[in-house]
């Protein structure tokens, strides 16, 4: 809850960095009491739960109205009217996997930057070199990831289609790389 508290109350302790002098630890209880934010999260929860139970509810109510005539042909997998050819769980292009991995790195980065850059305006208002600290922190972090992106780009890991020439070069760079 410290993270959420940090965002709302601008508590001075965020991600282990003490940006500012006043240190304040926000617990679940003080958080709820200070801002009524627990009530708001309760509201949000009721939205999510309502949205999640709607599909089963609608399908359940529909059960009493809709016909049900199961038939061997109807229950086979749809493959354009042909008999299905084996299972769909086949080997798949591992590009998708690579994209997911790269995404994970970038998404975690963006998620971590949210609280830091949230404090940027306040850091400017405080004056001194606080803004410079936040700026340097955030963009050094971003910069490292950006170098990663440039590397991915160079090695062709973010190219969806890689021709034979590219693949040969890629393998060569991999071989040259120190083990």
């Amino acid at each position: 809850m410290l993270g959420f508290g940090g965002l709302k109350l601008r508590s001075r302790c965020l991600l282990g960095f003490n940006f500012f002098q006043r240190h304040r630890v926000v617990t679940l209880e003080t958080y709820g009491r200070n801002s009524g934010m627990l009530q708001e999260f309760g509201n949000a929860l009721s939205f999510v739960l309502l949205a999640a139970i709607l599909p089963p509810l609608i399908l359940f109510i529909g059960k009493f109205f809709r016909p049900s005539f199961p038939h061997e042909g109807k229950l086979t997998t749809y493959e354009c009217g042909e008999l299905p050819e084996g299972s769909a769980y086949v080997m798949f292009n591992n590009r998708f996997y690579l994209v997911a991995i790269v995404f994970l790195v970038f998404d975690v980065e963006v998620a971590l930057l949210f609280p830091v850059l949230l404090l940027f305006r306040e850091a400017i208002d405080i004056g001194g070199n606080t803004a410079a600290q936040v700026f340097a922190l955030a963009f050094a972090f971003l910069g490292v990831l950006f170098i990663g992106l440039v590397y991915e780009w160079k090695t062709g890991d973010i190219d969806w289609v890689r021709d034979a020439e590219d693949r040969r070069k890629h393998l060569e760079t991999l071989e040259k790389a120190p083990q």
Binding site: G62, F65, R66, P67, K74, L75, T76, Y78
Partner: peptide
């Protein structure tokens, strides 16, 4: 809503 609910086996 009134369509048959057919789930592939």
């Amino acid at each position: 809503f009134l369509k048959e609910d057919s789930i592939s086996k």
